[in-house]
Write a protein that binds this DNA or RNA. Structure first.
Lengths: 157, 157
DNA sequence: CTTGACTTGTGATATTATCACATATACGCC
DNA sequence: GGCGTATATGTGATAATATCACAAGTCAAG
């Protein structure tokens, strides 16, 4: 898994690229990536950071979609459900998945200064967590791993 | 770190024991464990599971403390700040720390069936997470690691 | 072209959390 | 002990986040 955040990169390209993969994935899995859902994913990708449901809703409403909370929440729930977006509980916010398709349940690194959110490789983390849980006889089904701190860019400023 | 949850144990004793350690810790660190704060900790310990701020508030109000949200939130914030309680973001809830004093920032195992919350050893998890973060130049300051699944008791039922 | 499953729009409401300001209490210092 | 300051609490209002319920619309299979 390549860490996309915290590095300079062709931003518009990364949007298109991820979007492309998301659409391919949706087709492959017979997911219905409807206009609202697709637009929400685009909005998240454009923002390139975590957005609250109401921020997303505002954008949607401005574009002629419904302006009631369920419109945003339902689309976001769909995207999260199918691995196209992630929910950042610490921020009560959502962010586009940068690695759709690649089975992963990443750890999130949240910069407290610039609010950027990066997906970090969590393979080792999950292994360790699984071991701890197993020692207690607990079976993990889903998990969220979030860290708050300073990103490299903000550290040097 | 001993896993207290998921095992039968002398419940009333564990309450008193943890409370005792919390008070000792407070004295040692010159923390002001005021009546509201102490009572909130007791309530969390008695419940022995995660409680929402408004649940706590209801209990407080019934006992003559203030009945406005900040009363509960302030006490809970204090307890979390000083390691006497933990915030479970997945549940928008709080739980008493079962290991006050022992420097730890545990992983939480949340049973989706019975809503019990156990603190699991997170030393390995944090090491792995720190390694992933460091690889990206990110400095972790705080983190929350939560897993949802089935506890041993609910698995066999 | 009809049925049934899924999706969206909409209004209302529930739940969680914070702000602002007045009052009261505890602590350090003299 | 008395004073001044920092800290804590009470209270009303409000903000931010999330869900429910139901009607209407859309899509796809048969």
């Amino acid at each position: 898994m390549e860490p996309l955040a915290f590095h300079h990169h062709d931003h518009s390209h990364c949007e298109g690229d991820v979007m492309h993969r998301a659409e391919a994935l949706a087709k492959e899995q017979r997911l219905r990536l409807t206009p609202v859902r697709k637009r929400v994913l685009e909005i998240l990708l454009e923002a390139h950071k975590a957005m609250g449901a109401y921020d997303v809703l505002q954008r949607l409403a401005a574009e002629g979609f419904g302006n009631q909370p369920p419109v945003a929440y339902r689309a976001l729930e769909f995207l999260v459900e199918h691995g196209l977006a992630h929910r950042i509980r610490r921020l009560n916010a959502f962010t586009a998945c940068m690695h759709p398709g690649e089975a992963h349940s990443p750890a999130f690194l949240i910069c407290r200064q610039c609010d950027s959110v990066a997906e970090a490789d969590a393979a080792g983390v999950r292994a360790a967590l699984g071991a701890s849980a197993e020692a207690l006889g607990f079976t993990i089904e889903r998990s969220n791993i979030e860290a708050l701190g300073l990103c490299p860019a903000c550290k040097t400023e």
